[in-house]
Nucleic acid binder design. Structure first.
Lengths: 195, 195
DNA sequence: TTTTAACTTGAACAGTCGCTCAAAATCAAA
DNA sequence: TTTGATTTTGAGCGACTGTTCAAGTTAAAA
């Protein structure tokens, strides 16, 4: 005794995620979203509760997608560092045209939500902490496999990676510097190994 | 035969700058600004033309202030690198409470304005390019003074500095990681010297 | 086929947005 | 003191915001 939902929740979230990533939360209107996901306000609000609810689900999905992407590169690489390098190269170099922004959506979120007690700010912190924990796992593997020395702990490598990665993505969020990407990524991984 | 303006343009821009830096352009309403600078809409609009005009002037002022700050640290330091280090330490560590955000306002601007042909996006690019040119000057001095080798060119040092600095500021835009700041800054300047 | 709970629709609400402009206030020059 | 150009004021405009909900549509269960 029911009617079935006519939209695929995964697709809707993915489309919303792209729009939010591109324009940011505040500059994306609910009418922008309605058009992008082809749903009327009532359906959106019954499915996600609010604009904030949809953003929340979009940001969570973004981090899942990012981890999936890393897993993909890891599974077709000989080493953990090789997988991470392929991931960084893909994000910084190859997706310049098809990605809504060079800057990580998590970083954008952390930058946009200023009030320290807002739900979305706290969500961005939580997801960033999860991602750091995930990276720490990967660097633990890299150390155990002998790819890296143990002058730094895994979490220290993870922090260093994040600083470099965020810094690079910010730097390449502009036109005309494409040819600098590969040498700077080479430098980044050279530094990781020499730390 | 006239009336004189009753506000000090510099102060108004500085206050507006803090608010924009904290909340971002889209999340700052003209009524927020009116209250913060204690001016009525008519006065603001006759002085700055639009919300965008006031933001534009605020962002320009921000970069001037940042350069002034660097000049201050340079003039009371023995070396260029020492001055830059004092600046970085001051920004990342000491201003955690009194600064609207750990993240550079220029980086926030570059991240917020997605449309590549918008005035404010192009302004953020222009100011970032100016800042890179300024840093390049400083690293040219550092090389000439023998503080750094010349395996990298001045502009390459400047790019490396920006990536590190932006990455660090992004990483420290969260609570509970304060004690990591000094070691990571030490690491940053160790790397610059060893490049 | 009828019933009925679930889903979709889109007009519309109350509030906020960036911004305008006629009127009032101000003060240097005449 | 009068004049008149300039600045300040704040009510209010039209557009847009996030969100609601009564009415319409759908399809599984009876």
């Amino acid at each position: 005794m029911a009617n079935k939902v006519k939209f695929e929740r995964e697709n809707v979230v993915r489309v919303a995620s792209q729009l939010f990533w591109q324009k940011g939360f505040h500059a994306t209107s609910t009418r922008d979203l309605q058009e992008a996901v082809n749903m009327r306000p009532g359906s959106i609000y019954s499915a996600f509760g609010s604009k904030e609810g949809l953003y929340s689900e979009s940001l969570k999905d973004y981090t899942v997608q990012m981890k999936n992407q890393i897993e993909g590169f890891l599974s077709s690489a000989d080493t953990v560092l090789g997988g991470l390098r392929a991931f960084v190269e893909n994000v910084v170099i190859k997706t310049k045209d098809c990605s809504p922004s060079a800057i990580c959506m998590l970083v954008k979120a952390n930058s946009e939500f200023a009030e320290k007690d807002s739900n979305l700010y706290e969500l961005s912190l939580e997801l960033a902490a999860q991602f750091e924990a995930y990276l720490t796992q990967l660097f633990t593997q890299a150390i155990n496999k002998g790819e890296l020395g143990d002058t730094l702990t895994a979490v220290e490598y993870a922090r260093f990676f994040q600083v470099q990665f965020t810094g690079l993505r910010g730097y390449f969020n502009r036109p005309g510097v494409e040819q600098l990407a590969q040498p700077m990524i080479n430098q980044m991984f050279m530094l990781i190994k020499k730390l």
